[in-house]
Computed example of a mutant assay.
Amino acid sequence: MMLRWRNTAMAIAGLLTLNGCAAYMPRDETPTPPPGFTGPPAPSGPSSQRLGRDGYPLIGAYPTTAGPQADQATVAATQARFANVAARAGPAGTARYDQSVSELSTLASTRQSEAAARAAEARRSTQELRDLARERQERARTP
């Protein structure tokens, strides 16, 4: 009896799960594309790729020519614009950079010396506590 109820409950759960998918299935025989796939891809620039009637590139139809290239005047202007970028930027070790490096080096050495002093103080206080504990133990042993 228990097995029959369990099988019935599993069958109902399975049908309810599949019923949830029914909203995504078309109700008639005409296929409808999901949203987001309704149009051809957005143009990304000039190309000689052959496209089909729907606007999508034809698979296996490779471009027959190269896309349009920049003319010589545009190339010359771009080269002139970027020709001396490194020279105009200044030397790598400018005065401001050298100053900030020296400030940071000074700060690092100061912090290292402070850390070393604090560590020495901690060792000293730890040693003092050990000596005090040893002294008290000796007093406790001595009648």
Rank of each mutant, 00 (worst) to 15 (best):
T65R: 13
Q72T: 14
L58E: 05
T64V: 15
P57S: 07
A70N: 06
D54C: 14
P46G: 10
G55T: 11
G67A: 15
Y56W: 14
A70Q: 08
R53M: 11
P63C: 10
Y62M: 14
D54N: 11
G67K: 01
P46Y: 07
T74F: 03
G52W: 00
P46H: 11
G60W: 00
L58Y: 00
G45I: 06
A66W: 14
S47R: 08
D54H: 05
R53G: 12
A66K: 03
Q49C: 08
L58W: 00
G67I: 14
D71V: 13
Q72W: 05
P63F: 02
G60S: 06
I59E: 02
G60Q: 02
R53E: 14
P68V: 13
G52Y: 01
D71P: 05
T65L: 04
G55A: 08
S47L: 11
G55L: 10
R53S: 14
Q72K: 05
G55C: 06
D54K: 00
P57Y: 04
P63H: 02
V75W: 01
P57A: 08
Y56I: 02
A73W: 02
Y62E: 11
Y62P: 06
G52I: 09
P68Q: 13
D54P: 03
L58D: 01
D71I: 10
G67P: 07
Q49I: 12
G55W: 01
Y62N: 10
Y56V: 03
A73M: 10
S48W: 08
T74D: 08
D71G: 12
R50M: 14
G60Y: 00
L58R: 12
G52A: 14
Q69H: 07
S48D: 15
A73S: 07
L51A: 08
G45L: 10
G67N: 13
L58K: 03
S47N: 06
P57E: 02
Q69A: 14
L51M: 13
